[in-house]
Amino acid sequence: MAAAAAAGAGPEMVRGQVFDVGPRYTNLSYIGEGAYGMVCSAYDNVNKVRVAIKKISPFEHQTYCQRTLREIKILLRFRHENIIGINDIIRAPTIEQMKDVYIVQDLMETDLYKLLKTQHLSNDHICYFLYQILRGLKYIHSANVLHRDLKPSNLLLNTTCDLKICDFGLARVADPDHDHTGFLTEYVATRWYRAPEIMLNSKGYTKSIDIWSVGCILAEMLSNRPIFPGKHYLDQLNHILGILGSPSQEDLNCIINLKARNYLLSLPHKNKVPWNRLFPNADSKALDLLDKMLTFNPHKRIEVEQALAHPYLEQYYDPSDEPIAEAPFKFDMELDDLPKEKLKELIFEETARFQPGYRS
């Protein structure tokens, strides 16, 4: 834990890192770190609560700039109880001085990944967590956004079992017609939660990839272990087919990539493993919904509104309290091709509203 900075004593240090967030945020305490930044909790002297502050230093890398800009653009436009918001952003007053960006968010005690390492969940908890994931996802999908990296560590939890989806750095506007060349190379989302079509096709992607990830998360809540822990690309596919069985001819016809289709045709026939054999203690309604989410063919996979209306979630289902976005989200430009200098300018502009004396 960093010592509390005395008023006016300059930035606090946390594990050798400068955290320049005073005077409003003090009493910093280390939480963890990701690929390009550290997260601390801090005391907000204005709202009198502890908050989470993520320090991001992305400006050396085009990919990190892209992810940072995506996350900020999306989260500043989203407003939903099951999606983490941005409360404040701290950065230098000029673009030349801006080396880091500090993002202030609600402090959540833990995440689903940490929880599943230590606790076996009751059916009631599984049901409530799944409902909140789908409630947040309904809003995301209504904005025409794909999260693309749903996994237990991106689901934040607090002691009252509130759940918030975080990390929109890989999110995209849904565009089933656009052929994202190089899709697989830039697709760094965790393999275990990846839909089979991501490994088999490169053309376009749809909201059904997020539903697949939610199915993987439900299976993990039922058993405290990942359902498809593939060691590499082909191993991942083999794990999936080992449980779902061989795809039907109709399902194979959806695979545009001939090499991928021929690979699947070359494999020995596998039978589907019954879900109640894998999860003998699970609620039968939970397994019915799991089956509809972990469907090989993305066109037959359940959609988020149908999933919310499934009998497993009937005690929570309330369409009048499951809000959607006001308007579909649009990125003005494809960020993939922009140089990091341009992305830095866009991050600077996007964060201006939090600067003292800002006038829109």
Rank of each mutant, 00 (worst) to 15 (best):
A5M: 12
G8C: 08
P11Y: 04
R15D: 07
L28E: 04
Y30V: 00
I31K: 03
I31T: 00
I31Q: 02
G32I: 04
G34E: 13
A35G: 08
G37W: 04
A42E: 10
A52Y: 02
I53A: 00
K54N: 14
I56V: 12
P58E: 02
F59S: 13
F59E: 06
F59T: 00
E60F: 01
T63E: 12
Q66T: 03
T68H: 00
R70I: 02
I72H: 01
K73F: 13
F78G: 10
E81A: 10
I83H: 02
I83R: 00
I83G: 00
I84E: 06
I84N: 15
R91N: 00
P93D: 04
T94Y: 05
T94G: 08
T94S: 15
K99W: 00
D100F: 02
V101M: 15
V101Y: 10
V101K: 10
Y102H: 07
Y102I: 05
D106L: 00
D106H: 04
M108W: 03
E109S: 03
Y113G: 08
L115Y: 02
H120W: 09
S122G: 02
N123A: 10
N123K: 15
D124V: 14
I126L: 10
I126H: 07
I126K: 10
Q132M: 06
Q132S: 12
I133T: 00
R135D: 01
G136I: 01
G136L: 05
L137F: 02
K138Q: 13
S142R: 05
V145Q: 03
L146M: 11
D149N: 12
D149V: 15
K151C: 10
N154R: 10
N154H: 10
L155Y: 04
L156S: 07
N158K: 15
T159C: 14
T160K: 13
C161N: 02
D162Q: 00
D162H: 01
D162A: 08
L163S: 09
L163C: 03
C166F: 14
G169L: 05
L170K: 07
L170H: 09
R172W: 03
A174Y: 04
D179K: 07
G182P: 12
G182V: 15
G182N: 10
T185C: 11
A189Q: 12
A189I: 06
A189E: 13
R191C: 07
W192R: 15
R194E: 14
K203F: 08
Y205C: 10
T206P: 14
D210L: 11
W212V: 12
G215C: 07
C216D: 05
L218N: 09
L218Y: 11
A219M: 13
L222K: 03
N224Y: 15
R225H: 11
R225N: 01
R225F: 03
P226C: 11
P229H: 15
H232P: 08
Q236G: 08
Q236K: 14
L237W: 04
L237A: 10
H239I: 11
I240S: 03
I243P: 05
S246K: 01
S248G: 07
S248F: 08
Q249L: 14
E250P: 01
C254V: 04
I255G: 03
R261I: 09
R261V: 07
L265F: 06
P268H: 14
K272T: 02
V273P: 00
V273Y: 04
R277T: 05
F279Q: 03
N281E: 10
D283W: 00
A286Q: 03
L289Y: 10
L289M: 13
L294K: 04
T295P: 15
N297A: 02
P298K: 05
E303P: 00
Q306G: 02
Q306L: 14
A307H: 00
A307E: 01
H310W: 02
H310Y: 07
Y312G: 07
Y312M: 10
L313F: 08
L313A: 09
Y317P: 03
P319F: 08
E322R: 03
E322L: 04
P323T: 13
P323I: 00
I324T: 00
E326G: 06
P328K: 07
F329I: 15
D332L: 09
E334P: 00
L338A: 09
P339T: 14
P339L: 13
K340F: 06
F348I: 14
E350P: 00
A352W: 05
Q355C: 04
G357P: 01
G357M: 13
